[in-house]
Simulated assay, not measured.
Amino acid sequence: MTRSWIGRRAVVAATFLLALSPLAPAAAAPPVVEAAGAALRPAGAEVVAVTKVAERLTDLSVRSPALGGRVVKVRLLTPDGWNPADRRQHWPSFWLLAGCCGDYTAWSGTDIAKIESLRKVLVVMPEAGWNGWYSNWWNHGAGGDPAWETFHTVELRRLLEKDWGASSNRVVAGLSMGGQGALLYAARHPGMFRAAAAYSASAHPLLNTESINRIMGFFGGQGGDPRRVWGDPVAQRNIWAAHDPYYLAHHLKSLPLYLSSGDGTAGPFDQPDALEADFNRQNKALAAALTQAGAKRLTTNFYGPGTHAWPYWQRELHSSLPILLTALNVRP
């Protein structure tokens, strides 16, 4: 990397290639944080198709005004006894978010359907775009740019609680981009989630120039303008800070939290990985900020050798489940 976005306002292709992971897996302005239930708009999302994929796996096709009328998928791993026709039933919900450059099916490749304790909760795995970053793109509505945050936290939440057996008792977890999403949603919507876990998350994208360039590489994926997501990291720094978990630590400090990442050196499954090394530094910075903010229920597992890969995330999901399920009042 010989040029920085901050210095030249250009994304270097080599940075993007370096940032791609095998996912198919000066002071900032105060971030804006929305209260749970605030700004509940736009309304009117609807389920237009339902597909039973396998035992306990059901896909909903949802038409979303927040996404410009686009139809996207949401996969549900359903609890024993789940019957959406029975409006009296409401299950604790576990939102499980995918990373960049995968889709809503990503977690289905793990062993989640075999985890006995997850037979007691409704697991929600929503589409979030190839590189949607769990955000309302800063000029959403212009040129069809999406409002993923509104789709998930307003439209989908309403649908699930009205028609699909979800209760208001929720936790959230995710990997990489989805780990950032889990932290953002928990921080930006106080009270919406009772606990959060993030595995190899983009936890402090404003950490340094390398981190900024790397995420801009993701933003620019598939030939897009990287400024469409959060704007320019200098001119719109306040928007960036409002989507950087590090700057939202004081909104997370009271929650049970689980943060994990490897250091990017070769682990038992793989080769060295610069992306995981960067995210490891970001997670350690966030952990320090949380500690400074007075977090009392923070659990970290910075496990040393390990890269940006599924064997680690599946393991970390298992490790974090006791914290998440306890927050739901479900016996692990």
Score class of each variant (00 low, 15 high):
His152Thr: 00
Ala106Ser: 14
Gly221Met: 15
Gly179Pro: 02
Ile112Glu: 03
Thr307Asn: 15
Gly144Phe: 14
Leu275Gly: 02
Thr15Asp: 15
Leu160Lys: 01
Leu159Glu: 06
Tyr134Glu: 00
Pro322Lys: 04
Gln236Ser: 13
Pro190Ala: 08
Arg188Thr: 04
Ala66His: 01
Ala201Cys: 12
Leu298Phe: 12
Asp145Glu: 14
Pro233Arg: 08
Leu325Lys: 02
Val72Lys: 10
Lys162Leu: 10
Pro42Ser: 11
His243Asn: 15
Trp313Asp: 01
Glu155Gln: 05
Ala28Trp: 12
Leu328Gln: 03
His90Phe: 04
Gly181Ser: 10
Gly69Phe: 11
Val53Glu: 15
Tyr258Asp: 01
Arg9Phe: 05
Ser61Ile: 00
Gly144Ala: 11
Val229Ile: 14
Ala66Ser: 15
Pro84Leu: 13
Pro31Ser: 11
Leu207Trp: 10
Asn280Tyr: 10
Ala24Asp: 11
His152Val: 02
Ala19Glu: 10
Val62Glu: 03
Pro22Arg: 10
Ala49Ile: 05
Ala85Lys: 14
Trp5Glu: 01
Arg56Gln: 12
Pro305Glu: 13
Cys100Trp: 12
Leu18Ser: 07
Thr15Phe: 02
Thr265Gln: 13
Pro79Thr: 03
Ala197Ser: 12
Gly267Thr: 06
Asn213Thr: 03
Ile212Tyr: 09
Leu77Arg: 06
Ser135Thr: 14
Ala27Gly: 10
Gly179Arg: 11
Ala235Arg: 12
Gln180Trp: 04
His308Asp: 06
Val123Glu: 07
Leu118Glu: 01
Ala27Ser: 14
Leu57Pro: 00
Val234Trp: 08
Asp263Gln: 09
Ala293Lys: 13
Gly109Leu: 13
Ala203Gly: 15
Gln282Ala: 09
Val123Pro: 10
Ala195Leu: 08
Asp163Pro: 03
Glu116Asp: 14
Gln282Lys: 07
Leu206Asn: 08
Ala235Gln: 13
Leu159Arg: 01
Ala10Met: 11
Leu183Asn: 05
Arg214Leu: 15
Phe269Gly: 04
Ser21Leu: 12
Asp86Met: 10
Gly231Cys: 10
Ser320Gln: 04
Val330Ala: 08
Arg8Asn: 10
Ala173Lys: 04
Ala277Cys: 08
Pro226Ala: 09
Val11Asn: 09
Val47Met: 13
Trp130Pro: 00
Trp130Cys: 04
Gly217Asn: 09
Pro65Asn: 05
Val71Phe: 09
Pro226Ser: 08
Leu156Asn: 02
Gly267Gln: 09
Ala66Pro: 03
Glu149Met: 09
Thr307Glu: 15
Ser320Val: 00
Leu328Val: 01
Arg315Cys: 07
Gly81Trp: 12
Ala327Thr: 00
Leu207Asp: 00
Leu248Lys: 02
Asp278His: 05
Gly221Cys: 14
Arg70Phe: 07
Tyr258Gly: 00
Ala43Gly: 10
Val123Phe: 10
Ala128Trp: 04
Lys253Gln: 13
Trp91Val: 01
Ser254Lys: 14
Asp270Leu: 09
His90Ala: 15
Phe218Met: 08
Asp263Phe: 13
Lys253Glu: 04
Val50Met: 12
His318Pro: 00
Gly294Cys: 13
Arg228Trp: 06
Ser167Leu: 07
Pro245Thr: 02
Leu255Val: 06
Ser254Gly: 09
Phe219Ile: 02
